Amino acid sequence: MATGGRRGAAAAPLLVAVAALLLGAAGHLYPGEVCPGMDIRNNLTRLHELENCSVIEGHLQILLMFKTRPEDFRDLSFPKLIMITDYLLLFRVYGLESLKDLFPNLTVIRGSRLFFNYALVIFEMVHLKELGLYNLMNITRGSVRIEKNNELCYLATIDWSRILDSVEDNYIVLNKDDNEECGDICPGTAKGKTNCPATVINGQFVERCWTHSHCQKVCPTICKSHGCTAEGLCCHSECLGNCSQPDDPTKCVACRNFYLDGRCVETCPPPYYHFQDWRCVNFSFCQDLHHKCKNSRRQGCHQYVIHNNKCIPECPSGYTMNSSNLLCTPCLGPCPKVCHLLEGEKTIDSVTSAQELRGCTVINGSLIINIRGGNNLAAELEANLGLIEEISGYLKIRRSYALVSLSFFRKLRLIRGETLEIGNYSFYALDNQNLRQLWDWSKHNLTITQGKLFFHYNPKLCLSEIHKMEEVSGTKGRQERNDIALKTNGDQASCENELLKFSYIRTSFDKI
């Protein structure tokens, strides 16, 4: 039985969820670079991206490699990797027998973001014989899940209580170790020597080791999670996991709180800001991140802002960003909400898709409305799209047979046209069989910064309504002859009103 693990408890099935942008060198404390989270699957090609990484700022997932063999891993080693800020997950990587050479110096898994409450997941690794993470000293947050690894031993010899604050939620089941077939031998045991430290858990006094050649490092209890030197002297209180010299914040392997210019500090002093819960960055760093993602459509890219001495992905609820200094300031009234469309555009074809934009005031991208039916549609669209004030790209209304009016965009005031449909149009209306009105132009103002209007096959939309939009939106004169079809717009509506004058002759039985 794995020490510190839980057996036999019912657990939810383990679901495996399925960018080499360097964020800056980590400095003297770390020998390499800070790398983003990685999802490495199918083959070993991307694994080489770990070569210079000291910190993975995010998670590391290595999974679904069915053609790899043990010899493929023999020359692979990433000794610079010290810390993973989120979680480490391995799933069905064939041929991998140990992690001792792959990650010989991995010391800390912070667990800032977890995989279903777990910071370390080893699942269905069919050839893994031992973990071998002999320098792993601290899992700051989260638990361990090690399950269905039929060859995995050296679990009962690990004292997880020396690595985690609590072992109650560890789930370590259905491994070879369960069948008591392992016969784990710690260093020196074969020669009758006791080389590794022994600890007591559940009444068992057991030597602690990761492999037959690597003991588990056990520091004096007084050192807590700070770690200790090879001689057993406690590291500085700002260290986490390990250090090369005692009581020196510049000799830590990793930091308990924050890293700044080669030393570990309790908090980031001005003019620095907390970033990702582990390091200090200056304003320029946060500003660069903001600008890199301002026009990016890459998933996970955030326009970072500053709030409460932190550089964070977005302002919290009730705050909006001051564009001059990136500071989050309290909103006066309802907060603006910028919604970034991942692929640059979004099609609204149902109430469900409209709900995804609920509360958005600025759309960074283009909207395509293609709704053919739905219950209580006008009210639903207004509830979900009615706060949109600005669209950076274009607005396209296409084959939306259920629409009679666009009044559900009740606050839309600006279409920038930074991206144009077919390279020309910022407003595009095609084949809307029941569209009769755009907006009530006596109450609604709309500016279209650039781009043209396109109207074709809107049989109940009168040309007068379209011409009014040209005047109000500032697009009059931009359109070419064929942009607004004269014969297919309003051709099934009563669009022309003329005053009919009647004269009559009164007659009676005795007068003409």
Rank of each mutant, 00 (worst) to 15 (best):
H28A: 14
H28E: 05
L29V: 05
L29Q: 04
G32T: 03
G32M: 10
E33S: 08
E33V: 06
V34W: 15
C35K: 00
M38H: 14
M38A: 13
M38V: 07
M38N: 09
I40V: 15
R41I: 06
N43S: 08
L44M: 12
L44V: 09
H48W: 10
E49N: 15
E49Q: 13
L50V: 07
L50A: 11
L50Y: 10
V55P: 00
V55F: 06
V55Y: 10
V55Q: 01
E57M: 14
H59S: 11
L60Q: 00
L60S: 00
L60R: 00
Q61P: 00
I62E: 00
I62V: 07
L63P: 00
L63I: 04
L63N: 05
L64W: 01
L64T: 07
M65V: 11
M65T: 07
M65C: 05
F66S: 01
K67V: 11
D72M: 13
D72T: 14
S77K: 04
F78C: 08
F78W: 11
F78K: 02
P79F: 08
K80T: 12
L81C: 01
I82Y: 15
M83D: 04
M83S: 12
I84R: 00
I84F: 01
Y87V: 02
Y87Q: 00
L89G: 00
V93K: 00
G95N: 08
S98M: 02
S98V: 02
K100P: 02
K100T: 09
L102W: 10
F103L: 05
F103R: 09
P104N: 00
N105A: 12
L106P: 00
L106D: 00
L106R: 01
V108N: 15
V108M: 10
V108D: 00
I109G: 00
R110N: 05
R110L: 10
R110Y: 05
G111Q: 00
G111I: 00
A119P: 00
A119F: 01
L120P: 00
V121C: 15
I122L: 13
E124Y: 06
M125P: 00
V126T: 07
H127F: 15
L128A: 06
L128C: 03
K129Q: 13
L133Y: 09
L133K: 00
Y134D: 06
N135W: 03
L136Q: 01
M137L: 09
M137H: 07
N138P: 00
N138I: 08
I139F: 03
I139E: 00
R141M: 02
R141A: 05
R141H: 05
R141K: 03
G142V: 02
S143D: 09
S143T: 05
V144R: 00
R145A: 04
R145G: 02
I146R: 00
E147P: 00
E147D: 03
K148D: 02
K148M: 09
E151A: 07
L152R: 01
L152F: 01
C153S: 02
Y154C: 00
Y154P: 01
Y154L: 03
L155C: 05
D159L: 02
D159Q: 03
S161I: 05
S161G: 07
L164G: 14
V167L: 09
E168Y: 15
E168L: 14
D169M: 14
D169K: 14
I172H: 05
N175F: 04
D178F: 12
N179Y: 09
N179L: 09
N179G: 13
E180Q: 13
E180N: 14
C182Y: 01
G183V: 14
D184V: 05
I185V: 10
I185P: 14
C186Q: 01
P187C: 05
P187G: 05
T189F: 13
T189W: 03
A190T: 10
K191V: 02
K191L: 08
G192M: 07
T194M: 15
P197S: 09
A198Y: 05
A198W: 06
T199M: 06
T199I: 07
N202S: 04
N202F: 10
Q204S: 06
V206H: 01
V206P: 04
W210I: 03
T211H: 04
H212N: 15
S213A: 05
S213I: 12
H214F: 09
Q216M: 07
Q216S: 01
K217Y: 02
K217F: 07
C219N: 01
C219A: 01
C219V: 01
C219K: 01
P220D: 02
P220Y: 03
I222Y: 06
C223A: 00
C223Y: 01
S225Q: 06
S225R: 05
H226S: 05
H226P: 12
H226N: 10
C228E: 13
A230S: 09
A230R: 15
L233R: 13
C235F: 01
S237K: 02
C239D: 00
L240Y: 10
L240I: 07
G241Q: 02
C243H: 00
S244Y: 04
D248F: 03
P249Q: 07
C252A: 00
V253S: 08
C255L: 00
R256P: 03
R256K: 09
N257K: 12
N257M: 03
F258C: 10
L260M: 03
D261S: 10
D261I: 12
G262T: 13
C264R: 00
P269T: 08
P270R: 09
P270K: 11
Y273F: 11
Y273L: 07
H274A: 14
F275P: 01
F275K: 02
D277M: 15
D277F: 06
W278N: 03
R279G: 14
C280A: 00
V281M: 04
N282M: 15
N282W: 15
N282C: 05
F283G: 12
F283D: 05
S284H: 13
F285L: 08
C286W: 00
Q287N: 07
H290P: 07
H290E: 07
C293S: 07
C293G: 13
K294G: 13
N295S: 09
R297Q: 13
R297E: 14
R298V: 10
Q299Y: 04
G300Q: 13
C301Y: 15
Y304S: 03
Y304V: 13
V305W: 11
H307R: 08
N309Y: 05
N309R: 11
N309I: 06
K310I: 09
K310D: 13
C311I: 03
C311R: 01
P313D: 09
E314F: 01
C315E: 00
C315A: 02
P316D: 04
S317L: 07
Y319S: 15
N322L: 12
S323E: 13
S324V: 07
S324K: 07
N325E: 15
L326T: 12
L327W: 14
C328E: 00
P330V: 13
L332G: 14
G333F: 08
P334G: 08
C335E: 04
C335K: 01
C335Y: 06
P336S: 12
